[in-house]
Amino acid sequence: MVRKRKLGSQGLEVSALGLGTMMMPDSEESADTIRGALDLGVTMFDTADLYGDFALGQFGGNEKTVGRALRGRRDEAVVATKFGVTHGQGPKGDPAYIKKSVDACTLTAHDMSVTFESKPSRFRKGSPRQIADSKRSTGQSI
């Protein structure tokens, strides 16, 4: 079995190697590779709202590729997605946009969201604070 590693101090534990899916086209082979990786013990799959079939000039859609591949086995995997950087729409981080990113995958849940952020100035109006707000409003811990 593939050994695991802890990410952070919130209880997240994943296979010591994950699978990056950025370059995967939306194809049967991609789905087979994702499911095959899961069979081999890989439990973390990295996607993003921005990713898609770049060779075809198609942006977006990679989350759905991952979501479809994991259908029926979703609880075995940790899916990390990213938002904040869009194709042609500038930085984005409003709650509706994030919800779309999460729901778009036809996944029941995303286990980790990673925001593409590089400039501190963006953070003030960026998504992490809004997510933090939603946590604070319920008092839930993750």
Partner: peptide
């Protein structure tokens, strides 16, 4: 419960500190 953990991508050290203080980052 749709997002369980939060991370940042390509973030500099000072932003990591600030974000972690707002909400703990996992990665």
């Amino acid at each position: 419960g749709k997002i369980r953990y939060i991370g940042l991508s390509e973030a500099p050290a000072d932003l990591i500190r600030r974000a972690h203080a707002v909400h703990p980052l996992s990665a």
